[in-house]
Amino acid sequence: MKRFRKWIEQWMGEQFDLPSDIMMDLPRVTMIGNLHIYIENHRGLVRFTNEEVILRFKGGWLYVRGSDFVIKMILPEEILIEGTIHDVVYDIND
């Protein structure tokens, strides 16, 4: 059932040309070089250190690794992180 629903969502997104972050509640990540990372649609902060930020979102986690992290702003669904970003990793549990 869950799979079917996801399949429907994906299919509709493709058919109607809708942005998938809206359709499927996925995080939208905007990066400016490796200096800023702006993430929308997160579901909470799991971990915050100088070198790592872990965010929860629907159906998985997002890992941002780097150094000198500062959260410039945090709102219920948005976060702006400043620092030196090395890698962004998705961990999606199907």
Binding site: G44, L45, F48, V70, I71, K72, M73, I74, P76
Partner: peptide, 24 residues
């Protein structure tokens, strides 16, 4: 778990900015 504090602030509509992790 200070992250919990941050999340709870979000739920209660408290605006935080310039968060820095000083040490663990």
């Amino acid at each position: 778990v200070p992250e919990q504090f941050i999340n709870e602030c979000q739920n209660r509509g408290i605006v935080l900015w310039d968060l820095e992790n000083d040490k663990n």
